[in-house]
Design a protein around this nucleic acid. Structure first.
Length: 148
DNA sequence: GCCAACGTTGGC
DNA sequence: GCCAACGTTGGC
């Protein structure tokens, strides 16, 4: 089983929204590297849910991949903020995965905490200028996070 | 194919 | 709200 980290702005879609819905399609990813990682996800993979662009950025809970990558319909919808004019019915370009809620942490693992951990040096999330919204979590980093 | 201009992300 | 970092676009 692989471990992933996915970012979301809580104003757009938060861990509470996922908890309420239980299942949700993770759409709107418009970055090729992030998309390629989503294609690599397998059924049952664990996802660390990260809140970005908010008061206290950090990992706030977990989810599992309940449906692997399939076309993201929002890229074909002219009324969607995620509309992509370069996508076509034959070649939609973008994918979504379906996540199922697993847990919400009583105490989030904040970005500040992670930046202070020497074990996480090299983890893309804590690198300066990181903007990747979907990333794999290597075993060593996962072990360090679990220790919390 | 290079690279400047521009837009977006995201922490602070 | 600011700004650094990075991805994308488009002219050449």
């Amino acid at each position: 089983m692989a471990i992933w980290l996915m970012k979301s702005e809580p104003d757009e879609f938060s861990i509470n929204d996922l908890k309420t819905k239980q299942r949700a399609n993770w759409d709107g990813v418009r970055n090729f590297q992030a998309r390629n990682y989503m294609r690599d996800m397998a059924q049952g993979d664990l996802v660390l849910f990260y809140h970005s662009s908010c008061k206290v950025p950090g990992i706030v809970g977990t989810a599992t991949v309940s449906k692997t990558a399939h076309p993201d319909p929002s890229c074909l919808d002219p009324n969607s903020p995620y509309f992509d004019p370069k996508s076509t019915q034959e070649s939609p370009r973008w994918v979504q995965v379906e996540l199922t809620f697993e847990s919400k942490f009583a105490n989030p693992i904040t970005l500040a905490m992670m930046k202070a951990m020497p074990e996480l040096e090299g983890f893309p999330l804590v690198k300066k200028g990181n903007r990747l919204s979907v990333m794999p979590v290597a075993d060593g980093y996962w072990a360090a996070l679990q220790a919390l």
